[in-house]
Design a protein around this nucleic acid. Structure first.
Lengths: 193, 193
DNA sequence: GTCTATATCGCGATAGAC
DNA sequence: GTCTATCGCGATATAGAC
């Protein structure tokens, strides 16, 4: 692996384990087996490393939300999407853990994050609109209730991991599956009989 | 106000504004108009201040979740409860913003938090069980689905504020009301006709 | 209880040799 | 690209006078 990539991946690992505040650039360099100076050859600052990590995350999102066009999506596609999202969340769990705090102090990063997230959220909403149009959510009476459903599902999918952590439960495959099922529970009453 | 209380309340204000990481004990002391040394006379450490803040939060929770006994609760009581919870969340929003990260590095605090949260969550679940027993949630077919409903509502109520912040929207009374409505949307299909 | 002064430490970041 | 050495700063926390 190239040094620059090694630094980024090591930083992700350490941030996940101890949080961004507790991990210094020296720690990252040491864990990489390189000198602190070398780290600063590849990145301008700790914040710069963070930005690089976020860009990787954005790329993963784009890949996950790039649904195959041309076929009528089913509710099972939402399940798959959310499962995929949980995998990404797990790999970058420090981001979700610290997200409001991180964005709170890095205005530029926040702007970029909000824009990328909005793109994903819009696509997610359109998916639900397609369901409604295809009669899959026949019992949702108004367009507003379909939008609300999408927003609720998104919220669960975005914060389920944090919720599990905060409740003191173990974060494992079982917990992730419970999240998916719980989310589908919201949709169930609206499905066509 | 007593100096100790002043320190705690000022810390809450500054933490809410800039996050715990960006606020030093010196900043807190300066904002209080006292010396750094004086602050350390009242608290052993920054973490000690944090613990005191958490204990206040726990007390507020206990007060909010102490429902009047002896009358059959209605779904409107859940609305009121969640609104009250949003008020508390807003007053201590830094806690919610940084929660997973804070608990991640303070094991002792995490244990205490998990226990207190569990108490509130159990009471919330019992509330829903009472609804089911009273026929208010007549369309929920299994006890499991009632439990799931409670868990979903709890999750919304715990992370709505973070969700609004992360989406880039303004956190105001309107956003809070939207959260309550969205949460009630989950319950609606299960209500007796 | 409150102050001033200060010890100690670790972090982010840079300089300059190789 | 990588190293060693180091600067400057701000943070937590303490000592001792008042």
């Amino acid at each position: 692996m190239k040094t620059k990539d090694l630094i980024r991946e090591t930083a992700i690992r350490l941030f996940n384990e101890k949080g961004t505040a507790a991990v210094s650039t020296d720690h990252i360099a040491e864990a990489c087996g390189i000198s602190p100076g070398n780290l600063y050859y590849h990145f301008d600052s700790k914040e710069d490393i963070l930005r690089a990590i976020f860009e990787r995350l954005f790329a993963l999102w784009d890949a996950a939300f790039d649904l195959p066009a041309g076929h009528q999506p089913q509710l099972e596609d939402v399940q798959a999407l959310v499962r995929k999202n949980f995998e990404i969340m797990w790999a970058y769990r420090f981001v979700y853990r610290e997200l409001p705090a991180l964005l709170c102090r890095e205005a530029e990063l926040k702007e970029r994050y909000v824009a990328v997230r909005q793109r994903g959220f819009d696509g997610f909403g359109q998916l639900f609109a397609q369901f409604a149009a295809a009669g899959i959510l026949a019992r949702a009476e108004t367009p507003q209730s379909v939008t609300d459903l999408a927003e609720l599902c998104w919220l669960i999918s975005e914060f389920w991991l944090s919720s599990v952590e905060v409740s003191g439960q173990a974060v494992n495959a079982l917990a992730m599956e419970r999240g998916v099922n719980l989310m589908m529970q919201i949709v169930r009453p609206y499905r066509a009989a």
